[in-house]
């Protein structure tokens, strides 16, 4: 489903385009929406809210054991202290990857995702392949991402079926002792915070 818009032919796409444009016209004419508010909503999730937010949280947790303890205990307060909160992140839980356990987050029923720290979900996260397989074959899904975990690393899949939102705290790569939070944050990928990837290795 969601990833197949590339396959749509042009007329189909423009039909959708026209439909959305017509809807916006109707709603603006009726005074239900403020076009300036629409622009601001788009700008917020296009420019301001994205996985760089989560990367800062992770980098701080890697750098400061007290912060990490706080993050694991009261994720919302600890994330707010870095400046992030709000819609689709009202009830955060952080789950930590270790050599013994790898965590992966999915929403099999729709597309629940922690917006304040990761932004809007990528197309694959909302797609049928991911939603169907993450809970039944997480190792196979990891393979699709080019990730192979040791056979004895347990995998824990979190299906976001309520308003609790999960953020994965990836393992800190080796060879990064003494790195600044900014430098560490560059190693933290979006996928590593969903659990379909690992943090980047230092070059």
């Amino acid at each position: 489903m969601a990833h197949d818009h590339h396959d749509h032919d042009h007329s189909d796409l423009s039909e959708t385009e026209l439909r959305v444009r017509a809807l916006e016209t109707i709603l603006t004419e009726k005074g239900y929406v403020d076009p300036a508010a629409l622009d601001l909503l788009i700008e917020t999730y296009e420019k301001k809210v994205g996985p760089r937010n989560g990367a800062r949280v992770v980098a701080r947790a890697w750098s400061d054991p007290d912060y990490k303890a706080w993050l694991m205990k009261d994720a919302n307060a600890a994330i707010l202290s870095v400046g992030y909160a709000g819609r689709q992140g009202e009830h955060m839980v952080v789950v930590e990857n270790t050599p013994k356990q790898h965590n992966m987050v999915v929403c099999t029923l729709c597309s629940c995702y922690p917006w304040p720290v990761l932004g809007l979900p990528p197309v694959w996260y909302k797609s049928a392949p991911y939603r169907s397989r993450a809970v039944a074959d997480p190792r196979g899904v990891l393979k699709d991402f080019g990730v192979t975990l040791p056979a004895d690393t347990a995998i824990r899949v979190w299906d976001s079926t309520s308003e609790i939102r999960y953020l994965v705290l990836p393992m800190r790569p080796k060879g990064t002792d003494g790195w600044s939070e900014d430098k560490l944050a560059d190693l933290v990928t979006r996928d590593s915070m969903i659990g379909t990837g690992l943090a980047k290795e230092p070059e």
């Binding site: 990833h3 796409l13 959305v20 916006e24 788009i42 990528p122 694959w124 996928d191």
Partner: peptide, 22 residues
């Protein structure tokens, strides 16, 4: 299979932005 898209943008077409915001 799951097909990740490298450097995926938040939206893939202008109408998606409007649909989201509406």
């Amino acid at each position: 299979p799951v097909v990740p898209e490298p450097d995926e943008p938040p939206f893939h077409a202008p109408w998606e932005k409007r649909a989201f915001a509406l």
